[in-house]
């Protein structure tokens, strides 16, 4: 088996949503101009970038327009991938993941430029099938709902997403109940692969500054596992930056 995997689906869809709205619906900006602005890493257009970041509800907020765009990209990709079911007798089932490569893709001298959903050159974009970092603001149930709008029967080689939950949310008996309810809701809606991190980003930031205090702190991302202290700074930052779902207790 040799499977094609798609990375950055959230950013592709979010960017298309921005272009559809600002260029084609509102005619706020012309396409060639918009492309030039983004190619130039938003130089001189920081207000526009910020406006985009704050104005749009992107994938991960249970917003039907944003989620429909992700579903469209997802459907197009899986349909294309399914056209070649086998090559030289080797199966080619479609999957969605980044396997940590979002780091190398983000390299400022790499091929990937800034994106139309308001990311700069060098920003780490969405991991796997997760929302783009910092864009999901409606809480864990909204992220699950957004993800579950996709039809995973079309994506046999898996599409995972990460849900970061603050320890306060799952503390005590009520917390366990809440976690169980989240999982039930996920399964009932046809979810495929949910990776739950219960982590306090304050602790991770502290671990980054004082590695000697946390020699055994392990980070697991789906199948991937590492000791936090052994990761280089960029990887540590990525683990910290993955959107934290903080629900006030």
């Amino acid at each position: 088996m040799l499977a094609p995997h798609f990375g950055g689906i959230a950013n592709v869809a979010n960017s298309l949503l921005v272009i559809k709205t600002l260029v084609y619906e509102e005619r706020y900006v012309e396409l060639p101009e918009f492309i030039a602005i983004v190619r130039d890493d938003w130089k001189g257009h920081e207000p526009l970038r910020r406006l985009i970041r704050r104005r749009f509800a992107f994938y991960g907020n249970d917003d039907d327009a944003a989620d429909a765009m992700v579903a469209r990209v997802f459907d197009d990709y899986t349909r294309m991938a399914a056209q070649v079911k086998k090559r030289n007798g080797v199966l080619r089932p479609a999957g969605i993941s980044t396997f940590g490569r979002e780091i190398e893709w983000a390299a400022p001298n790499g091929p990937r430029k800034a994106t139309h959903d308001g990311h700069h050159l060098g920003d780490v974009l969405a991991t796997n099938c997760s929302p783009s970092p910092g864009t999901d603001t409606k809480g864990p149930t909204a992220v699950i709902n957004s993800y579950c709008k996709l039809d995973f029967t079309k994506c046999p080689n898996m599409a995972t997403f990460e849900l970061k939950i603050h320890p306060d949310t799952v503390r005590g008996e009520e917390g366990v109940e809440a976690l169980a309810a989240l999982m039930r809701g996920f399964v009932r809606q046809g979810g495929m692969f949910m990776h739950i991190d219960v982590v306090d980003s304050a602790m991770l930031i502290d671990a980054q500054r004082n590695p000697e205090k946390y020699p055994n702190l392990a980070v697991r991302v789906a199948g991937w596992s590492a000791r936090f202290a052994t990761l280089d700074k960029q990887w540590q930052n990525m683990v910290i930056a993955r959107t934290q779902q903080y629900v006030k207790a």
Partner: peptide, 13 residues
């Protein structure tokens, strides 16, 4: 409107 509140009555509210 706050979704997924877990300390204001039983369960996710």
């Amino acid at each position: 409107i706050q979704r997924m509140s877990v300390r204001d009555g039983p369960g996710i509210r």
